[in-house]
C-alpha cells in the first residue's frame, strides 16, 4: 500500500531554470541542471512522475528486472531531484513569456522568472472524437485504468487501442473484469510481442483488428461500441458495460498560447533539445519525435539538462 504525499518547499520568485512538467523528462532535466549547480524550479499540476505515474507497471525501463510501478518510479525520480536541491511548485502553468533574456512563467497562484525554460509537459490521452464519447465520459467511458478499474468488477469492457499502453493497461484491467474486447484500427496489434503473448494467454479476451470505432452507444450508460470493419465496411455493435480508451495522445501545449511554433501541437526541437527561441528547451513526449516512452523521455531529459547547463554557463 502506497501513501502519497505532495511535498511542498519554500519557493523563490527567480530561478536559473524553470522546468514545466514533472514527468520523467522534466525530472531528468532538473537533475542534470541541479548537478550543474544551477537553481531549478519544477512546475507540476497533478503529481511528480507524470503520465508514467498512472501506469500500473513499467516493464521496459532498464534497471527494474521485475518491472516497476509507475507511481514508484515517479516517487524515486522525485526524491533524487529533491536530494539535489531541485524545488517544486505544485501549480499549473497557464501562460508563458519566452522571448528575451528573462523568461516568465505564470501559474494560477503567481509568476516566476527564469533565465532558461524547459517545456516537459508531456501529453494526455486523446479522445477518439466519436459520438457518445463525451456524453458517456464518467458513465462508462474511461481513460485511466488505475483510477476506474474497480468499477468494472466482473463486467464486460472494451479497450480501444492495442498499442503498448492499451495492452499493458488491459492486463491490469483483466484482474478486475469479466472479459475484454480489444479494438484496434490497424490490421495488426502494434504492441510489443511480449505483451501480446501475455494478453492472449487469457481466455476472456477477444480482438477486433482492422476495426474503426464509429460510436459509443447506450441510453443512460454505455451499452456498447459500434465498430466498422475497415476492409469490408461491415458494422457491428460490441456489447460492453464500459470502454477504456488508449488510442493516441495529444501534447499538452495549450498553455503556450501560440507563443511558440508547433507541429501538430508538438514542440519542435533540434537534437540538443533547443526550440526556435533561445533559452527555451523541450524534452519528452511533448516533443516531435518517434518513440514516446519513459526511456526516451529520460534520454531527452538528459540531453536537455546538459544543453540548459551549457546555455546558463554562457557557452
Amino acid at each position: 500500500m502506497e501513501f502519497f504525499i505532495k511535498k511542498e518547499n519554500e519557493k523563490k520568485r527567480e530561478y536559473d531554470a524553470l522546468v514545466i512538467g514533472a514527468g520523467p523528462a522534466g525530472l531528468t532535466a532538473a537533475i542534470y541542471i541541479a548537478r550543474g549547480r544551477f537553481s531549478v524550479l519544477v512546475f507540476e499540476k497533478v503529481i511528480p512522475g507524470g503520465l508514467a505515474a498512472t501506469t500500473h507497471l513499467i516493464e521496459n525501463y532498464p534497471g527494474f528486472p521485475e518491472g516497476v510501478e509507475g507511481e514508484e518510479l515517479g516517487r524515486l525520480m522525485e526524491k533524487q531531484a529533491r536530494n539535489l536541491g531541485v524545488e517544486f511548485a505544485m501549480e499549473e502553468v497557464v501562460d508563458v513569456e519566452l522571448e528575451g533574456e528573462k523568461k516568465r512563467v505564470k501559474t494560477r497562484d503567481g509568476e516566476y522568472e527564469g533565465k532558461a525554460v524547459v517545456i516537459a509537459t508531456g501529453s494526455s490521452h486523446k479522445k477518439l472524437g466519436v459520438p457518445g464519447e463525451d456524453k458517456f465520459t464518467g458513465k462508462g467511458v474511461s481513460y485511466c485504468a488505475t483510477c476506474d478499474a474497480p468499477f468494472y468488477k466482473d463486467k464486460k469492457i472494451a479497450v480501444v487501442g492495442c498499442g503498448n499502453s492499451g495492452m499493458q493497461e488491459g492486463l491490469y484491467l483483466l484482474r478486475f473484469v469479466r472479459s475484454i474486447d480489444f479494438i484496434e484500427y490497424f490490421p495488426y496489434i502494434p504492441a510489443d510481442r511480449i505483451l501480446q503473448e501475455r494478453v492472449k494467454k487469457h481466455e476472456n479476451v477477444k480482438f477486433h483488428l482492422n476495426h474503426q470505432v464509429l460510436e459509443i452507444v447506450g441510453d443512460e450508460r454505455v451499452e456498447g461500441v459500434r465498430v466498422k470493419k475497415r476492409d469490408t465496411g461491415e458494422e457491428k455493435v460490441i456489447e460492453v458495460d464500459g470502454v477504456f480508451i488508449f488510442a493516441g495522445l495529444s501534447p499538452n501545449t495549450a498553455f503556450l498560447n501560440g507563443k511558440m511554433e508547433l507541429e501538430d501541437g508538438y514542440v519542435v526541437t533540434d537534437e540538443f533539445m533547443r526550440t526556435s527561441i533561445p533559452g527555451v528547451f523541450a524534452c519528452g513526449d511533448v516533443r516531435k519525435k518517434v518513440l514516446r516512452q519513459v526511456a526516451t523521455a529520460v534520454g531527452d531529459g538528459a540531453v536537455c539538462g546538459a544543453s540548459v547547463v551549457e546555455y546558463l554557463e554562457g557557452r
Binding site: G138, G140, D148, F151, Y152, K153, E220, R221
Partner: peptide, 25 residues
C-alpha cells in the same frame, strides 16, 4: 461499492453536490 453504484459512479473523481448536481473530473 453499493454507494458508488447508487450514485452511478463509473469514473473518478466524481463530484455530487446536494445529491442532485454532479460532474466528473
Amino acid at each position: 461499492p453499493e454507494l458508488a453504484n447508487r450514485y452511478g459512479v463509473y469514473a473518478v473523481p466524481k463530484v455530487i453536490i446536494n445529491e442532485e448536481h454532479s460532474f466528473e473530473g
